[in-house]
Design a binder for these strands. Structure first.
Lengths: 210, 210
DNA sequence: TTATTTTTCTACTGTCTGGTAAGTAGAATA
DNA sequence: TATTCTACTTACCAGACAGTAGAAAAATAA
């Protein structure tokens, strides 16, 4: 009977740690191959064990995906907490958040969340995943409205801006490769330059078609 | 022997038209359920036939996905052609392109391309898909460089900007729903306002923390 | 050392799904 | 009317893969 704990049982620290390794191996495999293409044999191989060993730490492929997503959402929540510093302007909070957020989505679990669609999750997992993302979205929209109020941001639609920001920065998680040429911080600098200052030439007079 | 044409045979106009219907039904089904989750039975049901009927018009699920992607890339190429008007500034060309591009990715085939990762395609299809996207990316980067030269855009990194734009506008294809509240044109206006003018308050003096 | 528990393995099953074989109703053609 | 082609259908197969049963190692405790 004492076969599979999976979030019950004494769950020793050692067991929990091993479970983390399982989840991380799964996230990496899902990210490399895609969730639906990756098999649990692939995941097991990544970890150097055989498939049934995984079932000692999780009770289904869906549960594994769910827990990877939960790890990511937790990290994102952490990023949000670190950004909600009342001394900062809305704009500064926004910038700080997306810096931390992008670091999250460039790691195994964050990338896993970004690379899976809500429809890849089973119903209950999907709801939590969507709820988590919506929380972040609302928090960001509030930062934006605060920024408009405190004068650090110009008048913009907070809904459109929030989505545009998330989509643009999520994109980084899809293509960014740590072994690539450019480092993450300079990419972020360029993105913030684009979003904050815009791309239109500043000396362009309204109506001048040149 | 004369069973399955599939890009050979006399291919009457009637056959071609029916094939388009098959592809469109497939694209809609893939978009609704996700490519890997959607079965060919789902596609057949969407069209009101049985699965083997699909094999009269295509020889594999992968081929169907590939042709959906090809339809999308053709439409995107068309959008590019319509944007390369030499009388316009680089900035105007860029805006025009992404207006047309977004319309493409909000339709069945375009959305299908955006919602599938390169890894979902088989090798040969993947190469063409990647090549097609790279062409667009290079064309957009050239527009950006032209815009900088002609003074309609400020100095920005064309590589970063191109990716940020594609990621942000691709995102629209993921969440935009024709039956939703906001219409596409006003969303586009907000996006261009964000990207062109930026979101930083204009009167902010350098260093002023308020 | 022996007993017990934890962790992983070998061998297997059930189901799902892409794809095929073979046949058929109806339209077109001779 | 007889024949052939078009556009499907029903019935099926083979392979892949999530998940399971139970044995076997490892590790830990007694």
């Amino acid at each position: 009977m004492a076969g599979k704990p999976s979030a019950k049982q004494p769950t020793s620290a050692k067991y929990d740690q091993r479970r983390q390794e399982v989840l991380r191996a799964a996230a990496r495999t899902f990210n490399r191959l895609g969730f639906h293409i990756a098999t649990l044999d692939d995941v097991a191989e990544e970890l150097g064990v055989t498939k049934p060993a995984l079932y000692y730490y999780a009770k289904s492929k869906d549960e594994i995906l769910f827990d990877c997503g939960r790890m990511a959402l937790d990290a994102m929540s952490g990023a949000l907490d670190k950004s909600l510093v009342s001394e900062l302007t809305g704009r500064e909070r926004l910038v700080r958040f997306f810096r931390l957020y992008t670091e999250v989505i460039c790691e195994d679990f964050g990338r896993c969340l970004v690379l899976t669609e809500p429809r890849d999750h089973i119903a209950t997992s999907r709801r939590k995943s969507i709820a988590g993302r919506r929380n972040l979205n609302h928090a960001v929209r509030e930062m934006i409205r605060d920024g408009i109020k405190d004068g650090s941001l110009r008048q913009v639609d907070d809904r459109a801006l929030s989505i545009a920001l998330f989509d643009a920065f999520n994109g980084i998680g899809r293509w960014y490769n740590e072994k690539g040429a450019s480092d993450l911080q300079s990419i972020l600098d360029q993105y913030f330059s684009i979003f904050l200052k815009g791309i239109e030439a500043p000396d362009t007079k309204p109506g001048s078609k040149r």
